[in-house]
């Protein structure tokens, strides 16, 4: 494993190749007030994420990972600092603008899957397309394609309650990717899954993101998950401790290819 631990300040000099910056975070700070007390969830975060990167935010519980992700997804407003995604300042957007922005550019994968229990797998996957005003036949065609990609071809009509956790998360992944968003956020996508299933899920996400050069930001406390990332952001107590950058081809050679050889069918 090639470990390129680098200081934040020198990050830009290391990344010499001209890449598109997708997410640009500067001096981000988030303080919660609980009662009269202040809880500093994020202290001072500076971070650049490039197009097509598969990033992991790795840290212990309470380190501020979810807080960081939620602010990137526009679900929370920072106390201080700026988040630019695709050159747009997230912290300045209204709720309405954020909703439009999310629909256009962002997919989201949840730890507890968060499928709508009344809907079938197919309907769940097609949901983001409903909001984009795709007609029924068109969105079902696309949704089927994505369900097939995550290996759930036979389960279109199944309700979430009729599926295992791993299967539900695969539906969740299909739903996040179905609109081909440029960025996908995932908060502990393997948090409720066993190791074998976690690997399966990571594999699927990796493959799908690479296919369309999509950017993924995954929050996890599991170092095994972080093995799949091009960039691992270590977080502790609201600060970035270090950033690990790897060559994507190495990740493929080491983790993806052997997996595919062992498990031909998913």
């Amino acid at each position: 494993m090639i470990e390129q631990t680098s200081e934040l300040s020198s990050q830009k000099t290391i990344e010499t190749a001209p890449k598109d910056i997708v997410i640009d975070i500067k001096e981000l700070r988030k303080v919660y007030k609980v009662g009269g007390e202040k809880v500093v969830a994020l202290n001072k975060i500076d971070l650049l994420i490039y197009r097509g990167e598969i990033c992991c935010i790795l840290g212990t519980s309470g380190s501020g990972k979810s807080t960081l992700l939620n602010m990137m997804a526009g679900l929370e407003k920072p106390t201080k600092g700026t988040i630019q995604i695709k050159d747009q300042a997230m912290e300045k957007m209204s709720e309405k603008q954020l909703a439009i922005f999310r629909q256009k550019y962002i997919g989201f994968i949840f730890q507890s899957y968060n499928l709508l229990p009344a809907l079938t797998a197919l309907e769940n996957v097609a949901m983001p397309l409903i909001f984009r005003r795709f007609n029924k036949s068109r969105r079902e065609k696309i949704a089927k394609k994505y369900l097939e990609m995550v290996g759930l071809k036979e389960r279109y009509k199944h309700k979430p309650s009729q599926m295992s956790g791993g299967q539900q998360q695969r539906v969740g992944i299909a739903r996040a990717f179905v609109g081909s968003p440029e960025i996908i956020f995932a908060d502990e996508p393997t948090g409720n899954l066993d190791t074998k299933t976690s690997i399966e899920v990571m594999h699927i996400m990796w493959k799908m993101a690479r296919e369309k050069n999509q950017t993924i930001v995954i929050v996890t406390h599991d170092p095994e998950v972080a093995l799949y990332a091009d960039k691992v952001i270590h977080i502790r107590d609201g600060d970035i401790q270090s950033i690990e950058v790897r060559d994507g081809n190495d990740v493929y050679e080491k983790y993806i290819k052997p997996y595919e050889e062992n498990y031909v069918e998913i």
């Binding site: 679900l75 999310r102 629909q103």
Partner: peptide
């Protein structure tokens, strides 16, 4: 509550 939140995150507009 949860359903509404999920819908918002996966692309529902406020007016939806």
């Amino acid at each position: 509550t949860k359903e509404i939140g999920v819908m918002k995150v996966i692309g529902a507009q406020l007016k939806d």
